[in-house]
Design a protein around this nucleic acid. Structure first.
Length: 474
RNA sequence: GGCGGCGUAGCCAAGCGGCCCAAGGCGAUGGUUUGCAAAACCAUUAUUCGUGGGUUCGAAUCCCACCGCCGCCUCCA
């Protein structure tokens, strides 16, 4: 398994800390608004990674934080917290806001078939762990107190800038922030902030206040995965300053290496443009579904291109994704038909080879830094071969279905095909069958149109049978 | 200004020194099949990889220059 490590700027062989196990920490949502498709690309990459590790037989511990405090709206560590701003606008308690949007996030995650993390720790529930870490950093001389504020002294951490490639001087040169006179260096960042206007406040050794933005991930990751762990994921925007600061905090506090592999997902574009509130292209999952987009097509689209590549999200792309999924789904339907109509028997060598080659190549593709395009190509080559195979018995069909199921345990795009076909649709289908036997084509076509109007698609199968599935005849 | 990425067919996208007259998906066209469809299958759809040089026996792949696009540099996945 090879992964691109942002820390070393190289594709590296993944070596787990413990044989057969992998710990993954993913930067989750900040719950002050509905998460949008951009957020979900990053979460889906984490999901794909995790599912693939499981496919390979790893035991995965996956932690995704919920940030319900601490992100400042404007520069210079001043001003309102985003959560607080929403809370003030909606005249609600910040925790109420957080709860509402956490629920929104969970629902959308479910729609996208994202496997739940082992734990979704919330920042507000880990204040004491953060305070402990800040204390430790002060004790070790990496942090200093000014009044009721605590800052991290970046000059003390030699590797600061290792992840992002930023040097302290460069950060300084490009800085858009106003110099905070309290800090020893402009690049120093807050570990604990004092602001009487803030709605969310906790007691600390430095007075009432709230934690800095970066400390939560350091504190929570070490609590649930240990001070040193395998993989940390996030969006590319997290590289600097968030993850850079996490490294500085965690490594200074523990004296250990923090994260072995850093994975960053590149931003999504929408119709070739950056997504932003002002452009109005920050679609949420429910919004897309309301527009008639199928949820598994959203998932497919978002995972179907490489995570280190900007993916241009378009409605045409979603259409293509739907078609691609239908192609897979159709193959499953045909195999299920064979299961129903044939008897068990020997599995011929050709089918065995087809399955094992497919799984091996699929594994190989994703093992190469999650080369999803290659992996999908393997799937479609496999499907073509399956569709070409003739005279299959039940055992062979089952074996091939098993293979598809293994693949979809990673992709997660196939829908259950077990939806009950309504009685009246079956009656219509039977009516058409009779009409066809009588060569009454007019009636047959009319009935098929009627079935289509009700949202079902009737397909004839060889030998006079039929198959009913969701969809419409065009 | 600093750091980083990208430019491959109508669209999406893999390939990163010879297996490439370049995978796969979507779309399109023709064919097989079908009462007609749908689905499936077959064939065609880039002799060429932003442009110009160079290295090499050999380059989409390495180097240089240029053009264009994008991201990050304390709000952001």
């Amino acid at each position: 398994m090879k992964l691109y490590n942002t820390l070393t700027h190289k594709v590296e062989e993944f070596v787990p800390m413990q044989q057969g196990k992998v710990g993954i920490y993913s930067c989750g949502p900040t719950v002050y608004s509905h998460p949008h498709i951009g957020n979900f690309r990053s979460f889906l990459v984490a999901d794909l990674l995790k599912r693939f590790f499981e496919f390979k037989g790893f035991s995965v511990t996956h932690i995704m934080n919920i940030t319900d405090v601490g992100h400042l709206v404007d520069d210079a560590d001043e001003g309102a917290d985003k959560l607080e701003e929403t809370a003030r606008k909606q005249k609600k308690d910040p925790l109420e806001i957080a709860k509402f949007y956490t629920e929104s996030f969970m629902q959308a995650s479910k729609l996208l078939n994202i496997k739940p993390s082992d734990k979704y720790p919330k920042a507000t529930e880990h204040i004491s762990e953060m305070i402990d870490m800040v204390k430790k950093l002060i004790d070790k001389g990496y942090a200093y107190v000014v009044g009721h504020n605590v800052y991290y002294d970046v000059m003390k951490f030699a590797n600061y800038g290792q992840l992002s490639g930023n040097t302290l001087e460069d950060v300084n040169a490009g800085a858009r922030i106003e110099i905070n006179q309290e800090k020893k260096n402009p690049q120093d960042f807050a570990l604990w902030k004092h602001d009487p206007k803030h709605l969310q406040q906790w007691d600390s050794p430095w007075g009432r206040g709230f934690p800095g933005w970066h400390i939560e991930c350091s504190a929570m990751s070490s609590k649930y995965l240990g001070a040193e762990f395998d993989i940390h994921t996030g969006g590319e925007d997290n590289i600097f300053p968030h993850h850079e600061c996490e490294i500085a905090q965690s490594e200074a506090a523990s004296g250990k290496k923090f994260v072995h592999y850093w994975l960053h997902t590149r931003f999504l574009l929408f119709d070739g443009e950056k997504m932003s509130k002002s452009k109005g292209n920050l679609y949420t999952i429910p919004e897309l579904i309301e527009k008639g987009v199928r949820k598994n097509a959203i998932r497919y689209a978002l995972i179907s291109s490489h995570y280190r590549q900007n993916y241009n999200f378009t409605f045409d792309g979603l259409k293509a994704a739907e078609q691609a999924i239908d192609k897979m789904q159709q193959c499953v339907l045909q195999l299920k038909d064979i299961q129903k109509s044939s008897k068990a028997g020997e599995i011929c060598q050709q089918i065995k080879d087809l399955s094992s080659n497919c799984l091996a190549q699929f594994d190989e593709a994703l093992s190469d830094d999650l080369n999803i395009s290659k992996a999908l190509a393997v799937c479609f080559d496999f499907i073509r071969e399956v569709n070409k195979a003739e005279d299959m018995n039940l055992s062979e069909a089952s074996a091939l279905l098993e293979t598809i199921s293994k693949i979809d345990s990673v992709l997660g795009v196939l829908e259950s095909t077990d939806e009950e076909v309504p009685e009246n649709i079956i009656e219509l289908a039977e009516k058409r069958k009779t009409a066809k036997l009588n060569k009454d084509w007019k009636t047959a076509d009319a009935v098929r149109a009627e079935i289509s109007a009700q949202g079902w698609l009737l397909e004839d199968t060889p030998g006079g049978g039929y198959r009913i599935k969701r969809g419409e005849n065009t």
